[in-house]
Design a protein around this nucleic acid. Structure first.
Length: 637
DNA sequence: TCCACGGGCGCG
DNA sequence: AAAGCGCGCCCGTGGA
């Protein structure tokens, strides 16, 4: 049965005619009261919850209706009711919902903070990680688990139509099937041993919801300062490139009679260069145009990517200009003034979207993507300084040190790799000395005859690269050596750390032969390869190779992601239990940043660091884990 | 004018 | 046959 709770007249439509009625014309909808609703849920442990809202922003939009229910009965409560009446109920029961992050932000706005969550959307993500053709919407889940066709056609018109019978029915259906979906999902979850990872996701859900709701403090003045500098740099470099082309056209291209002729060869009908105006029509942001030009000038390049430009930079001054231009242009476009559109007009903060589960278990962030803010180079510090704590607050946070390398140590149990972390030595240097048979004091020296390659840097490339399934071809390309030489280096390296090789080979074999790969205990996340079956039958080496390399990396990357999620749960838990004046504001792979009241910052830094380390040691048991936290006014390394 | 695609590059 | 993993964003390109 569907119950409707409201303090106002119901809106009804017959055709296009709108009128108010007290009781709907369909007898499956009854009017009810708050008291009846609270009484109904008095002894239930779990409640299906959904909201309809006027939009996506909890600060500018509002809840139109709140739906609470189970399979037998659903209550549709309209916005004439003060929803905070349900605070106690919602904060003590298990809240069952589909993509709850959306609803939670609106409940937070009302001061309602549900604690125990089960999200059918996240459960489906956990069950189908890696599949590209999967249905994650409630409509898909209704069909898959309940064989019921849920009507979604109405979404988006509720605001106009009002709470008519069909809108109420639709709202009620959105909570009616949740428990059935959950029960059937749990059968699959248990069958695959995914309970731990599902619990982790359902718990960290509220942290991501809070992060989206709270947002990130941002100082636009500082951002604009850097943007203007970068824009200026970009324009100057464009001018320099144009001038260079002018000089090339008049002097360095004797085989081309005039730049006009060259231009006509290059692009029919439109001049890219006007000698009189000294105006060059080349779009320096166009890879195709750049490549064509450089090839016409006689350079052999495969692309105009940084790697190819770097290799040619001694041959002509245009390469250094192009390298620098690409960098500045990237900063100007991706991190320029356009970025300011993401500032929420109400909170003046950034409120990015979080996608909680990608194929390895990492998250992704968008609008804006806070996980790709520049971190290297001289402008990075300035750019990041725009992420600034307000007056009276500090940014407290930090990252795990060499975390993926520690994960490799734990899972491979390689003696040398373990020993390096146990003794606190520098892993890259230790392995470098053994791989290249040189004294450890010499690891920062260059290879004989190759001043641009230092032993330890190459070792770093190997340590990270091989964990991603890197081949001798890539190493040869990176180091500019022969494939044979590269092969030799890899063989030597793996003879130094045989158990690492064994571990990676095992992962690759596992993925290639089974079509899925999973994280070791305790989380046991699983990633499927949708294209595996076909590739396996057809012995498609290209696809199987991709699966093999991804499988070598997934448990490592995934464990990092699982651990930081565990840390987030525990950190938020401590904040909530103690009412600390702290907000988690960012998670950047192996880094957590919080916003903290200034007077609490010192104490908080110690607590945060401890929780991060303790969380990681739940998984990394053989060696110590290090987290470096610091207190600052703005986001910094 | 809109859209899909891919090169290129920002982060880890 | 191709050979380092995981993302999102910007822009140019080419077709509708």
């Amino acid at each position: 049965m569907i119950y409707f709770i409201s303090n106002q007249q119901r809106t009804q439509y017959i055709g296009d005619v709108k009128f108010e009625v007290k009781e709907g014309k369909n007898d499956y909808i009854k009017t009810s009261t708050i008291e009846e609703c609270l009484e109904y849920f008095k002894d239930t442990e779990e409640i299906g919850v959904d909201t309809e809202t006027t939009g996506f922003d909890p600060y500018r939009d509002r809840i139109l209706s709140l739906q609470l229910g189970d399979f037998n009965n659903q209550f549709v409560i309209d916005s004439s009711i003060d929803f905070t009446i349900f605070k106690e109920l919602l904060e003590t029961r298990v809240i069952l919902g589909q993509n709850l992050k959306f609803d939670l932000r609106f409940l937070y706005k009302l001061g309602i903070h549900p604690k125990k969550l089960y999200d059918t959307f996240l459960a489906e993500c956990v069950l189908t990680t890696g599949f590209t053709e999967r249905g994650l919407g409630l409509k898909d889940l209704g069909l898959k688990y309940c064989n019921v066709e849920l009507d979604k056609s109405i979404r988006g018109v509720i605001h106009k139509e009002g709470l008519t019978d069909r809108v109420i029915k639709y709202g009620a259906d959105d909570v009616k099937y949740l428990s059935t979906i959950k029960e059937k999902q749990l059968l699959e979850i248990n069958k695959w041993g995914l309970q731990n990872i599902l619990d982790l996701e359902n718990e960290v859900l509220k942290v991501f919801s809070l992060m989206e709701y709270n947002g990130i403090p941002f100082n636009p003045t500082k951002w604009i300062e850097v943007s203007e500098q970068v824009e200026k740099n970009t324009k100057e470099l464009e001018d320099k490139l144009d001038t260079l082309i002018y000089q090339l056209g008049t002097k360095d291209l004797p085989n081309i009679n005039s730049i006009t002729k060259y231009c006509n060869i290059w692009k029919q009908g439109s001049l890219f260069f006007d000698i009189k105006e000294r105006d060059c029509n080349i779009n320096w942001a166009s890879p195709a145009q750049k490549l064509k030009l450089l090839r016409d000038l006689g350079f052999k390049l495969e692309s105009v990517g940084d790697k190819d430009l770097q290799r040619n930079k001694s041959k002509h001054p245009i390469f250094n200009l192009l390298i620098e231009y690409s960098k500045q242009n990237k900063l100007a476009t991706s991190f320029g003034k356009d970025f300011l559109k993401f500032i929420n007009p109400v909170t003046k903060r950034l409120h990015p979207n979080y996608w909680q589960i990608l194929s390895t278990g990492r998250i992704s962030v968008s609008e804006p993507n806070i996980n790709q803010i520049p971190a290297h180079g001289e402008l990075a510090t300035k750019i990041r300084s725009a992420f600034e704590a307000p007056e009276g607050y500090k940014i407290v946070g930090g990252d795990y040190s060499g975390f993926e390398l520690r994960i490799i140590a734990e899972f491979s149990q390689d003696p040398l790799w373990l020993q390096a972390f146990r003794e606190g030595g520098d892993l890259h240097s230790i392995l470098c000395s053994k791989t290249f048979d040189i004294p450890i004091e010499d690891v920062k020296k260059s290879f004989p005859g190759k001043p641009e390659f230092k032993y330890r840097d190459v070792q770093k490339t190997i340590n990270f690269g091989l964990a991603y399934g890197m081949s001798e071809f890539k190493l040869a390309d990176t180091m500019q050596i022969s494939v044979e030489e590269a092969k030799g280096i890899i063989a030597k390296f793996f003879s130094v750390v045989p158990k690492v090789k064994q571990f990676l080979d095992m992962l690759g074999y596992s993925g290639r032969t089974r079509g899925y790969i999973r994280t070791p205990e305790p989380f046991r996340r699983i990633r499927w390869y949708q294209n595996w079956e076909k590739a396996y039958k057809e012995s498609d080496s290209k696809v199987l190779g991709e699966i093999e390399r991804a499988s070598k990396n997934m448990p490592i990357q995934s464990t990092n992601a699982n651990v930081i999620k565990l840390a987030m749960i525990r950190v938020q838990d401590v904040i909530d239990k103690n009412n600390y004046p702290v907000q988690i504001i960012m998670q950047v792979y192996d880094e957590l940043q919080t916003l903290c009241k200034e007077e609490f910052a010192e104490e908080w830094k110690t607590i945060l660091e401890r929780i991060m380390i303790e969380s990681a040691q739940e998984v990394i048991k053989s060696i110590p884990v290090v987290a470096d936290c610091k207190i600052s006014d703005c986001w910094s390394k």
